[in-house]
Design a protein around this nucleic acid. Structure first.
Length: 435
RNA sequence: GCGGCUAUAGUUCAGUGGCAGAACGCCGGUCUGUGGAUCCGGAUGUCGUGGGUUCAAUCCCCACUAGCCGCCCCA
């Protein structure tokens, strides 16, 4: 019989690696809290329509990468509902915003999430079919300031603070690090005008370009800008620029975002070709990449503004901006930086009963020490003392020998592995030395 | 979804058409309570799965699966 394995594109996270994951997640919670974000937890699956409408029917994510199934109808009269494992979380958050009428508070909603997402792509390093994102959204009625360029800059500054807190500095001339690229794809009105102009220009040029571009020119013209084929680059440079199609408000918005970033001393580059793959993005889009540790999958996180998404989903006007961090990629990056290598800490003490008659007393001692907050590992009385020492040295900083004498007298024999010093002490003294 | 590379011990990896190897780790060392880079000994395993060629396949061939790299796309 063949043994069962985690399915393609999924994996188990085990200690001590999970320690690093917890570090990343708790750091996100700590930093986001400083910016007054609250946590939202949305369901892991949603009505398929949510993603089709929100992300865009024609996007790759929706058209070929979703885990979708027909839910069982409970009664003959009921229609089976099409459900989908969430491929990203922004649509779900906006759905919740609409459903709970959060706009009626009149306040800006600042929400973050941490959780698994699912896309049926070909797995490779840093890309899994179940992957984890840490994301945040700032959304609310325009009267709450949700449309302000200050929000864009604040979110970007928060991301920089988060990466810095994790020990990841921005790249500079000599050292690798992260890089921030930003762009504006215009308002909901600008974007179609630009796409139309792009289509027009591509009608002539596209046949001379690479195969992929010929296809993209038809299906998703913005993607042509992303082409990496060297021969196509001059042709792409000659295409209409999004900046020339922004209306005054969008241009002013982008200028204001940059001014706020400059004020914070944030380094970034404007990349006019940075268009995100999801339909809901408007105006500001951005991406953080990292030079080291990730192969081709060098995007650490991405995001942007989505002023029209709520309305696309049937809700009130609710401009917003958000991002999603690829936690799998962030962890990979930290591991390659050795910034995350200091994991695998030891227990405070290892209790070694000598003879299995001492087992009950050992468990009682462990219970009491743990109640005082100590991290305790308990061996087994059938272990020879030599083995207890070997195991204890691997797992803990101190060993407590608990033989017949110790149990009778209540005086423990304690050896510290770092100093090699061994002495008798009471339980109270042991607690004091561990502090 | 497409192309390339890979799959051998718990781990990292050698290797051969004829009994399967190293290092690290693991277990044990003249049985009575002392670990760390000492020393001695021991076990590692359907050689990814299923077919085929052959007297004989871990090795050659085919398919499948998985991982990695690249493409597409994206976090």
């Amino acid at each position: 019989m063949s043994t069962l394995k985690a399915v393609r594109g999924t994996r188990d996270l085990l200690p001590p690696e999970t320690e690093l994951w917890n570090h990343v997640e708790s750091t996100a919670r700590r930093i986001f809290a400083r910016y007054n974000f609250g946590e939202i937890r949305t369901p892991i699956f949603e009505d398929t329509t949510l993603f089709a409408r929100g992300i865009g029917e024609e996007t790759d994510v929706v058209s070929k990468e979703m885990y979708t199934w027909e839910d069982r109808a409970r009664a003959a009269s009921e229609k089976a509902q099409s459900l989908t494992l969430r491929p990203e979380n922004t649509a779900g958050v906006v759905r919740a915003y609409i459903e709970h009428k959060l706009g009626e508070t009149g306040l800006l909603q600042k929400l973050f999430y941490i959780g698994p997402q699912f896309r049926r792509e070909r797995p490779q390093k840093g890309r899994y079919r179940q992957f984890f994102q840490i994301g945040a959204e700032v959304i609310g009625p325009a009267t709450a300031g949700s449309e302000s360029p200050l929000r864009d800059a604040e979110v970007l500054e928060m991301l920089a603070a988060f990466l810095l807190e994790l020990g990841l500095p921005p790249a500079n001339a000599v050292a690798p690090g992260w890089r921030l690229a930003i762009n504006s794809v215009g308002s909901a009105a600008d974007r179609p005008r630009y796409v139309a102009a792009l289509r027009e220009a591509l009608r002539e040029i596209a046949p001379t370009m690479c195969e992929d571009c010929q296809r993209r020119a038809d299906t998703n013209p913005l993607r042509v800008l992303d082409c990496k084929v060297p021969e196509d680059q001059p042709k792409i440079d000659a295409l209409p620029k999004i900046a020339d199609y922004l209306d005054d408000a969008s241009t002013a918005h982008f200028t204001a975002v940059r001014a706020a970033l400059d004020a914070c001393g944030m380094a970034y580059t404007v990349n006019p070709r940075l268009v995100r793959g999801l339909d809901y993005y408007t105006r500001t889009t951005f991406e953080f990449t990292h030079d080291a540790g990730l192969g081709t999958q060098n995007a650490l996180l991405g995001g942007g503004r989505y002023d029209g998404l709520s309305e696309m989903l049937g809700g009130p006007r609710a401009p917003g901006i958000g991002f999603a961090i690829g936690a799998d990629r962030l962890v990979l990056t930290l591991q390659s930086q050795a910034a995350g290598s200091a994991v695998g800490s030891k227990a405070d003490v290892f209790i070694a009963p000598v003879g299995d008659a001492q087992n009950p007393a050992a468990l009682k001692l462990a219970q009491e020490l743990r109640a005082q907050g100590m991290r305790v590992e308990v061996g087994d009385g059938t272990f020879r003392v030599k083995k207890s020492f070997e195991v204890a040295d691997k797992l803990a900083r101190k060993i407590v020998l608990l033989g017949e004498d110790e149990v009778a007298s209540g005086v423990l024999t304690v050896k510290d592995f770092a100093s090699g010093e061994q002495r008798k002490m009471t339980q109270v003294e042991l607690l004091a030395t561990a502090r």
